[in-house]
């Protein structure tokens, strides 16, 4: 069995990549994808520790997180579609409705 450090390192790398995507990209949908990657990193941790601790409750939390992530993607897209309709763009730099 692979030592748990590997899982942690992989998860941390994924988290960093997702964070990089959120911080550098301007397109809202790419940002949404980066959020998905970050969530996946978190779920990977849950599953890994559930597996090493022989405790299935971690997997239950993982399932919960997956469902929440899918809902989050759907709601995020709905918001971005509305933003697109009202602003004509989904470049995050150009959406200034919250900071006049």
């Amino acid at each position: 069995m692979i030592p748990p450090q590997y899982e942690l390192i992989l998860s941390a790398l994924l988290f960093c990549i997702g964070l990089y995507g959120i911080l550098t990209r301007r397109n809202a949908i790419i940002v949404l994808m980066s959020v998905e990657i970050i969530l996946n990193a978190a779920i990977l941790n849950l599953v890994a520790f559930a597996s090493y601790a022989n405790d299935p409750s971690g997997q239950v939390f993982a399932l919960l997180a997956i469902a929440i992530a899918a809902g989050e993607a759907a709601i995020g897209l709905a918001i971005f579609l509305n933003v697109y309709v009202t602003h004509g763009t989904i470049e995050l730099d150009k959406i200034k409705i919250l900071r006049w």
Binding site: I29, A48, L63, I66, A70, L77, L81
Partner: peptide, 26 residues
């Protein structure tokens, strides 16, 4: 590999099946 088959299949079903399609739709 971590012996969490159910989570893996749900991952494919929900994440790989639905989320990218939603994203592409957007």
């Amino acid at each position: 590999l971590l012996r969490a088959e159910f989570v893996a299949l749900i991952q494919i079903l929900v994440y790989a099946g639905a989320v990218p399609v939603l994203l592409l739709f957007g």
